[in-house]
Design a protein around this nucleic acid. Structure first.
Length: 424
RNA sequence: GGAGAGAUGGCCGAGUUGGCUGAAGGCACUCGCCUGCUAAGCGAGUAAGUGGUGAAAGCUGCUUCGAGGGUUCGAAUCCCUCUCUCUCCGCCA
């Protein structure tokens, strides 16, 4: 959510941000309602002042045993007026709030302006793509041969786009989760959390999934609960409505959760393999920081996610999302894309974003500076560290051997009971 | 699912015969004093949000005692609904 003061004082900034994002949004309505809102408010405050003074007076008169009937009857009508204005005020307040909830964040100054993902500049490429003298297969072919996952049976259990891992596949998925969590907690300073996998409407609204993107979510029938599309939602909401101690910042959490996405509008896209599922596993990194250090922390967050790929010896590239491709809540986002030799493409495997105070304002997450009055909003950040299913797919494609076996990267072997290869 | 108790400031915790209670007391924190050091002690200060005024310190209006509604001139206090927490019973991984 944006600060309404920004609308009053610098609406040109908002207009530019919306234009850069390619959004068609009418700010004028908001301005008109806001003006009316403030005029009602000042009238209402004057009446409330009178009411407060009068009831003080009544209290004193009654104490002395005097008759206060005149004031009482006058205040009756004032109270009625207050009630009417109060209703008007809460109407306009609700309207303003709804509009603000639908306004996206303002891109950071360093974000390149562009229309869509084709205009995301590449920041760097890491790791070399080895030359091999055999045809590398996509992971779905490999997985079938190795008998480590089974989408047909998963479809029988649930439907399309659900994974069923078997044997070494299930173990490898679990090994990746454990390896990532261990790396982030022991090497990068994150605290592990295991949050609820369903959240309520407010939590979804706080991080920005609602109200605009409800069609992307799975909702629980009969409850106002939603399956989480990412651990970002429950983990960011840990500190919902809190005033944090400045000494506690930055706060770093890592969490493994399954993620549930309806993938509405992606029918026919990435239908094969592990790339686009309704349920997938992810290890997430979440930070709460002071405003002045959030961009420094974004770079560190990116490094922490990259470390996983480096240690797994997977080649990847990093891109900066341009304004047209930037997510609703984000001010700046780096995507990490891993090389998939079986498909000859780079695939997104992590997305690292700084939301600045956009989520913090919605979720009311603040911190207090010692010796200073008032509070400030924290900045929130998060990134995948990493998407586990896609990592497993990348491992299969990158480490496949001509005989169809797949070599397990060294760092994962302790998590696989020493297994160094998956054989067909 | 049944019965009961509760939700107050950064934290703990008073206040429920309605009226200087935005809220006692404690802890924590800040500043000052004191004390070889530390600890203790003494004094002062410290909720948030939002508006006005001011260069600033400050002064000042309004709102907020889980959420929403009601009674009343006036509600942390009375009534209703909801949410959450805790205890006991039942059921259960």
């Amino acid at each position: 959510m944006l600060d309404i003061k920004l609308l009053r004082q610098h609406n040109d900034i908002i207009k530019k941000a919306l234009a850069d994002r390619g959004e068609d949004f009418d700010i004028k309505t908001l301005q008109v309602i806001d003006e009316k809102h403030r005029s009602i408010l000042s009238e209402l405050e004057a009446l409330r002042y009178r009411k407060n003074k009068a009831s003080e007076q009544v209290a004193q008169m009654k104490k002395k045993g005097e008759n206060a009937d005149d004031i009482v009857s006058e205040m009756k009508s004032v109270s009625d007026k207050i009630k009417i204005l109060n209703d008007e005020l809460s109407d306009s307040d609700a309207t303003i709030h709804q509009i603000l909830l639908n306004l996206p964040n303002i891109p950071h100054g360093s974000v390149p302006i562009g229309k869509d993902s084709s205009q995301n500049p590449i920041v760097k490429k890491v790791g070399s793509i080895p030359r091999v003298d055999f045809e590398q297969k996509p992971h779905w072919d490999l997985g079938e041969k190795l008998n480590i996952f089974d989408f047909e049976r998963a479809a029988k259990i649930t439907g399309a786009r659900f994974p069923l891992y078997i044997g070494a596949g299930a173990k490898l998925e679990r090994a990746l989760i454990n390896y990532m969590l261990d790396l982030h907690t022991t090497q990068h300073g994150y605290t592990e959390v295991l949050p609820p996998f369903m959240v309520n409407r407010l939590s979804m609204t706080n991080t920005g999934q609602l109200p605009k993107f409800k069609e992307d979510l799975f909702k629980i029938d009969g409850w106002d609960y939603f399956m989480i599309p990412t651990a970002e939602v429950p983990v960011t909401n840990i500190h919902q409505d809190e005033i944090l101690d400045e000494d506690a910042l930055p706060i770093l959490y890592t969490a493994y959760t399954p993620c549930f996405r309806s993938e509405a509008g992606s029918y026919g896209k990435d239908t094969r393999g592990l790339i686009r599922q309704h349920q997938f596993n992810k290890v997430e990194l979440v930070k709460f920081t002071r405003p002045e250090s959030s961009y420094e922390e974004l770079e560190k967050l990116l490094n922490d996610a990259e470390a996983v790929l480096k240690n797994l010896e997977l080649p990847y590239q990093v891109v900066t999302l341009c304004t047209g491709d930037l997510g609703f809540s984000a001010a700046k986002t780096y995507d990490i894309e891993v090389w998939m030799p079986g498909q000859h493409v780079y695939r997104e495997i992590s997305s690292c974003s700084n939301f600045e105070d956009f989520q913090a304002r919605r979720a009311n997450i603040r911190f207090k500076e010692k010796g200073k009055k008032g509070t400030k909003l924290v900045h929130t950040l998060n990134g995948s560290g990493l998407a586990v299913g896609r990592t497993l797919a990348a491992l299969l494609e990158n480490f496949q051997q001509p005989d169809g076996s797949v070599v397990i990267p060294k760092v994962l072997r302790p998590y696989m009971n020493g297994m160094d290869k998956i054989q067909p």
